[in-house]
Design a protein around this nucleic acid. Structure first.
Lengths: 138, 138
DNA sequence: TACTTATTGAAAATGATTTTCAATTTCAAA
DNA sequence: TTTGAAATTGAAAATCATTTTCAATAAGTA
């Protein structure tokens, strides 16, 4: 279970396990679309009404630092987070419902080499994201 | 000259040509790296000390609306703007100095088809961005 | 040149995020 | 267990970027 893994990770890195962290981790680990801090707060508060927005920010910060979640960039904003991809994976986002799928297997080596030659840049990273409609929203 | 083109575009779309707009357009049209509103403000103010930050925001808003500039997403933030690419081009950013190069010629059709089949998504857009070091910064 | 209206910069308002702080909770050590 | 130091909490205040408001000014048409 992702939730347990994340909690273990937090603990192994010297962070204490608290009710606030459990609530946030539980919610974000199970989400299939990217959530903003405020969305996490509002949803998590239903399970744990004492939860404060500040703790949501602080927990997300730690999860990001441990590479357990990643920020999702979208035309409408870049504050939302989703479980991080394992290894070299990219995101595919549904423009309607926000559902996120991961994919791998992009082979951009040829492209990157030709760009490097043309521009003189030494390329070290690439960032690829696809947008579309998920099976449900078509 | 890009500056003249942008000013023409503003005028053709019913916007007046003012000192504030000329200053901002002149600066952004000539920039080789993405600039935040505050950076534009600070640089432009040297040429036009009367310029207000609000006018920078408003001018950038109009330039974006006319597709003359585009927002650049980076790990450090997504508020910076650069001249928009013509046609289907992507960005290559220097991680050291921020210098931006455009490139085209990505052929992701094969990849996108196989992803579509695997995930059931109907893919309609893609974002590709490369990061590295420009010739000067290597 | 006159005049309507868009545009301006400054100040106030907003909204998201961060910091501060006293009270509480965690967890390791006794 | 119990204890106690240190981390964590939520609320309130502070901060920072962006947007709105507004009276004064400037653009461009008549």
């Amino acid at each position: 279970m992702t939730t347990e893994l994340w909690l273990d990770q937090l603990q192994e890195n010297g962070y204490r396990l608290t009710a606030a962290r459990r609530t946030v981790v539980n919610l974000v680990a199970g989400a299939s679309r990217a959530l903003t801090p405020l969305e996490v707060f509002e949803k998590a508060r239903k399970k744990n009404p004492a939860l404060g927005l500040v703790s949501v920010y602080r927990t997300l910060e730690k999860l990001e630092e441990l590479n357990l979640i990643q920020r999702v960039h979208q035309p409408g904003g870049c504050q939302a987070f989703i479980a991080a991809s394992r290894g070299h994976e990219h995101l595919l986002l549904c423009k309607n419902c926000g559902e996120v799928a991961f994919f791998e297997g992009d082979d951009l080596d040829g492209l990157i080499q030709s760009i490097s030659k043309k521009t003189g840049y030494k390329v070290s990273e690439h960032w690829l994201q696809l947008f579309g409609l998920c099976a449900n929203c078509q």
